[in-house]
Design a protein around this nucleic acid. Structure first.
Lengths: 186, 186
DNA sequence: TCCTTTATTTAACGTTCGTTATAATAATAG
DNA sequence: CTATTATTATAACGAACGTTAAATAAAGGA
């Protein structure tokens, strides 16, 4: 227990490598070198390169998304979305890299068709979820769906800025932009 | 004349391959096979793999961006931005793939540090340019900078949707979302 | 015509890749 | 103490990679 389980350690290093060099640019040998284990150890814990990559996306990334989506407690709707985005700034390095890798697959910059289908499934759930969250605050708004769509699009860019481009977004900038889109929502 | 044909053909096929498989996933052999020429012909026209990739980004992608940025004629500001985005739908396949590849480098999912610096240079010019375009329409808006920033963020997502995720965005959806952000601009 | 330059191919070099067969070690259980 | 199982390492396989040397073909003046 002093040493982190080797299997986990391999996964962590793999996340870094896939992130920096992409799937094809990542080599099992380099992972092993950084983990400080012999090459076949990676095959001892993972069937092959693809399974290692898949586990990162299917388990780590989607766990992260679900955790992120579940920590809801709403008072003011603008505060809610501001916090939702702002908290991404303080994700652990590992989580940020997993997130980044997930976005990469989501944009089909990496991974394969099978992983893309997982992504599409998730994506379908996004608009309805935010529609539900926002509904109570949309009494005096006529173009409900457009506002939700616009907000989701804006959130996407901010997520990419923080997680993919690894930039810090200050809380007030986030709030300002969200407020522009939600300015008619009480 | 024949020379140019082959050189261009190599570049076109390379764009496809880099797009589909990334830099590391693309092999010179596969490009040659699709071009229907022998392998060393690629080295006859391009010094090496990296130079081929660099030329696509540095020439093709930035040409595209500048062409895109220069076709301005403004009447109504919402019409202007709507058209700006909507026209991306009808880019040629080649241009769309070049654009996609550029975005991939921009998000540092591919390419190297040197190319990223090119991207950063361009990025710095974005906000000022849109500020200038929007300034005349911002008379009765107090939070000018926030509006511009939000708009640029929204545009980015729509660009990614059309060019990276290869989706068709209908004109009215684009107009609706832009209108949300620019609703106080005359 | 011959010669020089351009365009293209065949064949191979050395390297690195993903993956595995095999063996050695450490841990555990009986 | 021994038998068995769980880990780890050494060494190598065949395939594919980026790249180049060398030879050949085509073209175009002189």
């Amino acid at each position: 227990m002093i040493e982190k389980a080797l299997r986990e350690q391999i996964k962590e290093v793999a996340v870094e490598h896939f992130n920096t060099n992409g799937y094809h640019g990542t080599t099992i040998r380099n992972i092993a070198k950084d983990v400080n284990c012999s090459l076949p150890m990676i095959y001892y814990y993972y069937k092959n390169k693809k399974e290692l990559f898949d586990e990162i996306i299917k388990k780590e990334y989607f766990n992260l998304l679900e955790k992120q989506a579940s920590l809801l407690k709403i008072d003011n709707i603008i505060n809610f979305y501001t916090k939702f985005i702002y908290d991404l700034n303080s994700l652990s390095n590992y989580d940020k890299q997993v997130y980044r890798l997930g976005v990469k697959v989501y944009l089909s910059f990496d991974g394969d068709e099978e992983l893309m289908n997982h992504m599409d499934e998730w994506e379908k759930s996004i608009l309805p979820r935010h529609c539900k969250i926002l509904k109570p605050y949309m009494k005096n708004v006529n173009n409900e769906k457009v506002v939700v769509r616009t907000l989701v699009h804006l959130l996407e860019t901010m997520i990419i800025n923080i997680v993919v481009k690894n930039r810090y977004l200050p809380e007030d900038e986030i709030r300002e932009e969200i407020s522009i889109v939600l300015q008619n929502c009480g």
